[in-house]
Design a protein around this nucleic acid. Structure first.
Lengths: 254, 254
DNA sequence: CGATGTGTTGAGTTCACTCAAACTTAGTGG
DNA sequence: CCACTAAGTTTGAGTGAACTCAACACATCG
């Protein structure tokens, strides 16, 4: 009984991951969606589920494939020459990782599971071969890369122009939206990343992350208890996320 | 006499821009460099020189081409919903702009000349057509995009983990390296961007930019007078650029 | 030669950091 | 099963780097 039920859950989650996958509408522009989708499916490989703390890949390894998260949560991070780490993203089911390595020899970032996670592997050479035959696929890959660039532009703006409160609000809104889009609750979820990871990602100290969480809780915007988060006032959170840090510099722009 | 001399200079600069262009080794991997280069040359269009303050394009315009800076300096910037600006880069001769729009409908960032500048236009549809015939070109375009992503990862790390001094030192080093690579002096150059632009780009107030410049000058690292900069101690500057901001958070990583 | 924009310098303030300690939870072995 | 440990989180106190506001200096230009 237990195994059966767990299978049901797994299948449900896998379906979610597939129908909401970032590669889902890879072939929409061209008419021949059906066959293209089938071909894409054929080259995708399911990998063994990863336990918390296991790496999908490490920085510097040769780049061979891109990956799609099916369930769980994957953290990606870059390491600098002087050993510093910068968390570059948290990836939920349906989202792709290692796309920042397309066209590179080696992976610039590492990826590690924050909880038990399952992923799909899409060998890059086979994807490339497919792209040569399917019109529109290359354009879709370009689009994925430019979306990645847009992600960094947003993040940069967030970190350099916004207060700690605005950053965390934006972070929660981002998670909410992405959970919602994938069929999970947008107002209630568990944070699989530590306060340390959040702080690193948003460029603030762990203590500040913790303090801002409690402040939001006290103000009634959210309820937070450790990993659990419930968003009460989405609109107020949006208002907070918009608050700029450099009032002065902004005035000077106009 | 004057016109002739100015022509000589112009030609020299153009040559610099071409032999050091980012698209220069676009076709190296495949053997047929020569013909590919010629074909690429054929689709490149020279545009009228731009005066200071003139836009190459604005955010939201339909994306049709990527551009290569031949001379001068181009600033790119993103604008958010709430009207805030984020300078995303300064582009020197030989560097490409609008590559963050490849595969998008519309341009996400705007580009404006900071001084009299000349640029090349490479229509994207023709580049795509070329890519279909020349093996390796698509991979090169992917590489350009991932380099752009790497640029943002670096910038993010810089803004979120480094002190104001480290940011400005890194900024100067970046300019120095890029000028040097393009055949200009790596130790002596003019900043065509304002303090405001620098501050915006690096996420710090104008006054701080100014103060750090004078501090570097007093310490003998550089000589700075308005737009003019001369780097005296490259190694010391590298040392400063490496200084992290969050000593605490970093220790917690290990 | 004022005018305007850009850059510099000074004074005071504040937000987020560091250091320190207490508390909570999850995991481990007696 | 519970004490014990380790890791992660929260809370408190004090500090400092970078911000804001304000005034001044310098350059460019009609």
């Amino acid at each position: 009984m237990q195994p059966a039920e767990s299978n049901v859950i797994k299948l449900a989650r896998l379906t979610v991951a597939c129908t909401h996958c970032s590669l889902r509408d890879v072939c929409n522009p061209s008419g021949a969606e059906r066959s293209a989708r089938a071909e894409l499916d054929a080259i995708v490989r399911r990998r063994q589920p990863l336990a918390r703390g296991q790496h999908v890949f490490r920085a510097g390894e040769p780049f061979r494939a891109i990956y799609c998260v099916r369930s769980g949560c994957i953290k990606t991070y870059a390491t600098t020459d002087d050993g510093e780490e910068q968390v570059t993203g948290f990836h939920l089911p349906g989202e792709l990782i290692a796309i920042d390595a397309m066209g590179m020899e080696r992976l610039p970032t590492a990826a590690v599971a924050l909880e038990t996670s399952s992923i799909c592997e899409i060998p890059f050479d086979r994807l490339n071969a497919l792209a040569r035959r399917i019109p529109g696929l290359t354009e879709q890959l370009f689009a994925l890369l430019t979306q990645e660039i847009a992600h960094y532009q947003t993040l940069l703006l967030l970190v350099s122009r916004k207060t700690a409160e605005a950053r965390l609000a934006a972070f929660l809104l981002s998670l909410s939206m992405r959970f919602g889009r994938r069929g999970f609750s947008p107002s209630e979820f568990y944070l699989s990343m530590s306060r340390n990871d959040i702080g690193n990602f948003l460029g603030m100290a762990v203590e500040t992350v913790s303090r801002v969480f409690t402040r939001f809780d006290e103000e009634g915007l959210i309820t937070v208890r450790r990993k659990y988060v419930r968003i009460h006032d989405l609109e107020a959170l949006r208002e907070v996320a918009g608050r700029p840090r450099l009032e002065h510099a902004l005035q000077a722009q106009f």
